[in-house]
Every structure is written in C-alpha cells, then in structure tokens.
Design a protein around this nucleic acid. Structure first.
Lengths: 225, 225
DNA sequence: CCAATAGTGTCTTTCAGACAGTATGGT
DNA sequence: ACCATACTGTCTGAAAGACACTATTGG
C-alpha cells in the first residue's frame, strides 16, 4: 500500500482568567518559520505516544503542572497542505482550561512564554484560527457544562465563579440571579462549610466543584438569545 | 529536525434515517487486518489535500453524491499507537448527516456497503468508539442547532422532521408541542406554500430549512433533563 | 359518516431576568 | 455608624409539557 507521510503535532490553546480577563498562553518562536512571532505552545507527537498523552506532556512542559483543577480536551485537527512551509504537518489542537496558577509560565521548554489577551492577531501558522475555535469552544461549554470550575482553584466563592463567566463571555451577569442559578443546579458546586475571611464585606462561603457533567437547564449567554 | 512519520486517514460516520430508525453507513472490509469485518468508510488523505477535502471526496466515493441537503463536519481525531497494526495511523473522523437517498449505496469504491443499525458491535479498529462519538455528537447537535433538516429532503413536513428527532433520540415527542416549537422558532424552517397530497388524513404543509444556525432556546432531550 | 393525520388553543409549571431587601463582615 | 459584599425573597414574563379541541383530507 502506498500513501503520503505526515508529521503530526499537538498544539495547545491554554486559557486562564487573570486580572478579570481571559488570557491565552503563547510562546515566542525561536526558529524559522515565523521567527519571533507569537505562537501556540505545541510539539511533535512522539513515535509511541497517544494524542492525549502528547497533549498532557506538552502542557506539563509548558506550564510546569496541570495539577489541581484544570481541564484538557481535544479541540479539532488542522491539516491544510500549505499550513506549514516545512512540509505536510497535521496538528491536533487541544484546549486546556487552568486556574490562575501562582507560577504561571516557569516552563522548562519555551524561552519566552506569556499570558496574553485573547484578541491576538498575527500569530504563527494558522494559530489565529485555532485560537478562535478554542475560545468559541470554551465560551460555548460554559453554557451547558460546569467547566467554569476548571478555571478556579479547588475551593472558590460564587463570586469568583461568576467572574470567570464574565471574563470568558465578556459581559456582566447579575450576581443575585447567578448565585441562585449555581446553588440550585444539582451537582454544579457543593459547599465546603468554610468561608473567606479578611476582605471587605461579608465573608463568602467556599465551594468545590460538584459531580455534574452537564448543566440542565443551561446558562445561556445574552449574545446567543 | 527529527520527528516520527505518520499516515493520516479520514473515516466517516455517515448517518441517515430510514424506516424510522437511525442508520450508519458501513463497509465490509476486503483486506487484512480485520478482513470481512464491518468498518466505517474512509481512506488515506492525499499528498496535497486538505482534511475537509479528503472527507468530501471519500463521502462522494462511498455514497455517490453529497448533493441536496446533507451536512459534513469534523468529529475528532484518533491516534492511539496500537489502533492500526500496520503502523502509526492517525485518523481524522468526520460526521455526515444525509437524507434517505433513493440511491443509497451505489458507491464505486466499496464492494459491500450497507445501511446498518447504529448499535453495532465488533467493528474494525477503534471504529466502535468513533461511531459512538459520532452518534452522541449528532444527538447533541439536534438540541441546539437546526441540523435535523440535514436528514430531510429539500422540502419536508413538520411530521417528517419530528420523526428525525424521534429516530435520533430514540424517544417519542408530542406532535403538537413539537409543531409549535419548530414553527415559532425564527429561522428554523420556512413555509413553501405547498402541501403534501394523496395520503390519508389532512395534507401537511411543506417547509424548507431556514437561515438560523443556532436554536434559541434549544430543544432538550428528556434524557439530559 | 368515519378514520386519520394536521394544526390551534389553553392551562400549569418551571425558570430566567429584574430588583428590593436582609445578613455579616471590616473600618 | 457606615460601607462593602454576600445572600434571600418576590414579582413578571417566556416557554415547555400536557392535552382538549378544531381542520381537512380520503375512503
């Protein structure tokens, strides 16, 4: 049997919420092509490695840890013949959602990695399109899954969860209605019994993620109604 | 730069509704490995071909036409090292939804192709998993997109559209509430002015698909509530 | 007339959106 | 006391589920 040969890479759309904004992890390329341009982190799939394993490995190399919380899923594959000038490369993009880690980009691999706003232009390769697809996937998944908790540390307040929604969707939500919705949806979050302390205002109860994998009914964005 | 080489294929989960049931297009393998087992149609991506183009080509080869109506989208990629005993093969699975064509499987390529029930066991490779993922994608997309119309001919009755939902979800829907829902959702369907004739009962108005790409609010399955 | 299927109207329940009001901390 | 933030309660309107009823065809 005769067939063309390909290289296969994984690229990562790694998102987090910092300073009330949705951010994406980018690396500055140190090689041609697209020298010095921002790009999604990624790399070649090894000879005896599953796609998901390659994505986990790259994530660990770039971020230091995919430790507590967080979420990693396959996004889509991109394989236009001209997408990489070096040859025929198919990339299997993955989407990672991480809490805002104390050690953000102390990766071993990438020389210059940084959290950047998600409205990036002029990324290397077709990474602009991959990024756009990843953001849309994240926005959409917040509607019907409890995945927003992946952006939060193991224990979080309802207000922190709401700020995740507001950052990802870019629109304000009513704190009271949001609180009611989240706490009455079975399995979305469960109370830990603990509370915050020290800040201004009444202390907030702390929650951890619940067991539900699907929100019913969903929380719909304004934009899609 | 040194990296492992892969073969890249596209595999197709082609679904239609026949005789009130959801069916998948399968081919009987004429080669090792998995000789004589049912498998999803598919093939190698050509040297200068986009992934989507390869999927369209394979669909045309297997079904004869992807003509009026229908829908084709990327599903997911599968690349476990051991998934093909011949070597390292990554497959980019696609999902196709087609109306029940008069000429179902007069393909040129596959010797023995057939519409089979979707509860197949013992497919070749990891095709059982791919099929399961494709069916779940289809079930889920009927909830929040007007994609059910892809299973229908260019003009169809509300009852025919309802039977698509019932076949894909495997549960009965109330004809009256379904009618109200579909006809009052802007952009889901638009009336043609024509009607059916000849059958028993009152003639039904004929509709074509509307311009909407997203249903708001969605039509939710019983199972997920 | 009757059977069969298409389509409309009505009632009830659920839930989102808007927003008043209460609770509990820090300064 | 006052401010800030957390949380609860109430009202209203939109829409789903259940289902009675009317409409239009063929036998």
């Amino acid at each position: 049997m005769n067939y063309p040969v390909f290289a296969v890479t994984v690229d990562l759309v790694v998102l987090t919420v910092r300073e009330g904004e949705l951010k994406v992890l980018l690396v500055r390329r140190g090689l041609e092509p697209y020298l010095d341009r921002w790009a999604l982190p990624g790399g070649f799939v090894h000879a005896d490695e599953d796609l998901a394993a390659a994505a986990r490995r790259e994530l660990a190399e770039e971020t230091g840890l995919a430790g507590p919380g967080g979420h990693l899923e396959q996004l889509a594959s991109y394989g236009k013949p001209e997408r990489d000038p070096r040859g025929r490369v198919v990339t299997v993009a993955h989407l990672a959602l991480l809490p805002d880690l104390p050690t953000p980009t102390a990766g071993t691999d990438a020389a210059a990695a940084a959290w950047r706003p998600v409205d990036q232009q002029d990324l290397a390769f077709d990474h602009h399109r991959i990024l756009a697809d990843g953001i849309e996937r994240a926005r959409s998944k917040l509607e019907y899954t409890p995945l927003a908790t992946a952006f939060c540390p193991p224990e979080f307040t309802i207000a922190a969860l709401r700020q995740v929604y507001e950052a990802v969707w870019g629109e304000p939500l009513d704190p009271r209605n949001f609180h009611r919705k989240v706490t009455t949806t079975p399995g979305f979050v469960e109370a830990t019994g603990r509370s915050t302390e020290g800040g201004p205002g009444r202390p907030a109860a702390l929650f951890r993620r619940g067991a539900a994998t699907l929100l019913n009914p969903p929380i719909l964005r304004r934009g899609t109604r």
